[in-house]
């Protein structure tokens, strides 16, 4: 049985199949409208979410399936101290596939050990967020026409930004990709990702100022400096405004830049940027739903 825990567990060919299928769903949604009739998705969200949870639920509904679940830990038995393994063994009896978001890193890995149905990691702490990466990959492929030979800038909180970790891991496998990592010293990428890139000989540079490098980028991936990932409020206040994209900074970039953001944003992208044709973050939201549809199809077909 397959799960989606970490994007690195999926081959380039499998990711291509998901993107091709998503493209096909976009072109011919009616062909997929009954693909998941009588199938149920459980969305177990121990942490708040707007996009990811609704995207999973919309994806399952558009495939003709149905959804159940909870949207915060306090409305589940987790509030009584139930373990992830017990919750998952229970929910496996009710649903055909489980999407889980959990504040603790590795919770979906624990879930996968005990579940009798496929588990999808919908975000675990500051660790991974592979289905956001699926949305990012499809957006890049549709906007750029390719996944190879790109200069990708990641900007903001690269230490706790789980979407950055997953996308960086996925894009490291495509030829000719270079990374420019733009962050304050305190929020640089975790050591294990730096080690992985060095081992795989993926070219990357680490800088502190967006203005210095924005012109060289094909893709700029902005992230939120996440309050909930800090142990110290003073650190959050000091760093939250460090990296804001506004029209002045965007004017330095070339005309073919694609600006991405996993959302939600706080103030790291000025709303004045939204009308710029280079701003693609709401397309990411839309493509994310189609990629989750493709993933559900793949995981449940694999099970059958």
């Amino acid at each position: 049985m397959r799960h989606m825990l970490d994007i690195a567990d999926w081959s380039i060919e499998e990711l291509q199949w998901l993107m091709d299928t998503a493209d096909d769903i976009i072109a011919k949604p009616e062909d997929y409208a009954n693909a998941m009739v009588r199938k149920k998705l459980a969305s177990l969200f121990y942490e708040p979410s707007t996009r990811t949870r609704l995207s999973f639920e919309a994806a399952m509904l558009e495939l003709g399936g149905s959804v159940l679940g909870f949207s915060e830990a306090s409305s589940s038995s987790a509030s009584k101290g139930e373990s992830v393994s017990d919750t998952v063994r229970t929910v496996s009896c009710y649903a055909d596939i489980i999407a889980m978001r959990h504040p603790k890193e590795g919770a979906p890995t624990v879930a996968a050990r005990y579940s009798s149905v496929p588990i999808v990691n919908a975000g675990d702490g500051g660790h991974n967020h592979p289905t956001q990466t699926l949305a990012d990959l499809l957006t890049i492929r549709r906007e750029k026409g390719r996944l190879q030979n790109l200069v990708i800038g990641f900007c903001g909180d690269l230490q706790f930004g789980r979407t950055v970790h997953s996308l960086l891991t996925a894009m490291s496998r495509y030829q000719g990709v270079k990374f420019v990592l733009i962050s304050p010293e305190e929020l640089r990428i975790p050591a294990y990702l730096r080690e992985n890139m060095l081992k795989a000989q993926v070219p990357f540079s680490e800088v502190q100022k967006l203005e210095d490098v924005i012109k060289s980028l094909d893709i700029l991936y902005m992230t939120r400096v996440q309050r909930e990932r800090f142990f110290n409020e003073a650190d959050y206040v000091r760093l939250k405004d460090s990296y804001i994209l506004d029209k002045q900074k965007l004017a330095l970039a070339h005309s073919q830049l694609t600006v991405l953001h996993p959302l939600p944003r706080v103030n790291e992208i000025s709303q004045s940027v939204d009308s710029d044709p280079r701003a693609c973050y709401f397309k990411q939201v839309l493509y994310g739903k189609f990629m989750r549809e493709a993933l559900i199809l793949k995981l449940l077909e694999a099970k059958a």
């Binding site: 373990s83 992830v84 393994s85 959990h102 504040p103 603790k104 890193e105 890995t109 624990v110 080690e195």
Partner: peptide
């Protein structure tokens, strides 16, 4: 790691894999 699932669920066995033999990581 205070954010790891093993910190809140005491019955999970802590498991590690060797990822860098030269440096013993």
């Amino acid at each position: 790691n205070p954010r790891c699932i093993t910190q809140v669920e005491q019955e999970i066995t802590h498991e590690f894999v060797l990822t860098d033999k030269e440096r013993g990581v």
